[in-house]
Design a protein around this nucleic acid. Structure first.
Length: 285
DNA sequence: AGACAGGGGAGTG
DNA sequence: CACTCCCCTGTC
């Protein structure tokens, strides 16, 4: 068990912004699976309490050593992003395990969060080692090489993604994934895209959520709609253009801008109608 | 109950 | 680029 005083950190926003899937909220605690770790954590004001992992892990995992105010200042370019930042200040980017992150986002394509969660749970139960906390059993995320039965991957309800997972399991290793950290952004991305089932969006998610590339700007349907409305006069623009604009406009921490905008437009606007009202300054809080 | 989209990607033209 | 198909769960 451990406790830390935290600044500029909001546990709930950080966990509920869609960057990580193996989390469960029970009685004010978040139970989290991360690779072979299984721990619980809760926040009361400026203090977090955790069980099952040590302080060093928590600080690294939640990027608590990064200067968030400086990052947010860097991306705070206009009134739209400012609104998102004001509302979700404290949202930090988690340092996920690259392999788990890769499989998670391969699962995410044309899917939804409840389903992704169920996929990952089933894969862990079938292929992962048992771990426990407070006498509760759970399963670690399987290491590369261990997700080795195509039919069982299919039984995890992964659908057409099953063959991507199966292939990745045979071709990817942790060492190579970690080596991507040393490459420039574009080269690292090109390497990831060689994996079947990994396109621009999934690659950017892996780069941002697990490999430390803060300039990666994942373009999904939500952020596409939002960006087109706010910055392209509501014209249809290719994902590539949106990505380029995002990086150039928001700078080296563009990924954070994406995540804050994503959170705000998804949670607080929800419909394109509301989005439009927001842009026109007609939406009251 | 039934239709439909869902934080994409690959293959084709 | 534009289009289709991939699988099937959540959701309305």
């Amino acid at each position: 068990m451990g406790r830390i005083k935290v600044k500029d950190f909001n546990l709930e926003y950080t966990l509920e912004c869609g960057q990580i899937f193996r989390i469960n909220r029970v009685d004010g605690w978040y139970y989290i699976n991360a690779r072979d770790k299984f721990f619980k954590i809760c926040q009361v004001k400026n203090e977090i309490e955790f069980h099952g992992v040590d302080k060093e892990f928590i600080i690294h995992f939640f990027s608590l050593n990064e200067n968030l105010p400086k990052i947010l200042k860097g991306i705070n370019k206009d009134k739209y992003i400012k609104k998102s930042i004001d509302k979700y200040r404290g949202l930090r980017i988690i340092k996920q395990d690259p392999w788990e992150c890769l499989i998670s986002f391969i699962c995410s394509s044309a899917s939804n969060i409840p389903r992704i969660k169920s996929n990952l749970k089933a894969l862990s139960e079938r292929f992962g080692n048992k771990v426990s906390l407070d006498g509760v059993d759970n399963y670690a995320f399987p290491v590369p090489g261990n997700i080795n039965n195509y039919n069982d991957i299919l039984n995890a309800k992964t659908g057409f993604r099953a063959r991507y997972i199966f292939e990745a399991n045979n071709s990817v290793n942790i060492k190579d994934l970690n080596l991507l950290r040393t490459l420039p952004y574009k080269r690292a991305k090109n390497e990831l895209k060689k994996i079947n089932g990994v396109g621009d969006k999934v690659a950017d998610c892996v780069l941002f959520f697990s490999l430390g590339f803060n300039q990666a700007f994942p373009v999904d349907t939500w952020i596409k709609k939002t960006m087109q409305l706010l910055y392209f006069d509501n014209n249809t623009v290719s994902n590539e253009k949106i990505r380029e604009f995002g990086l150039e406009y928001f700078g080296i921490y563009a990924g954070y801008a994406q995540q804050y905008l994503f959170m705000f437009s998804r949670n607080d606007l929800g419909t394109s109608n509301k989005l439009q009202l927001w842009k026109n300054g007609m939406l009251e809080e």
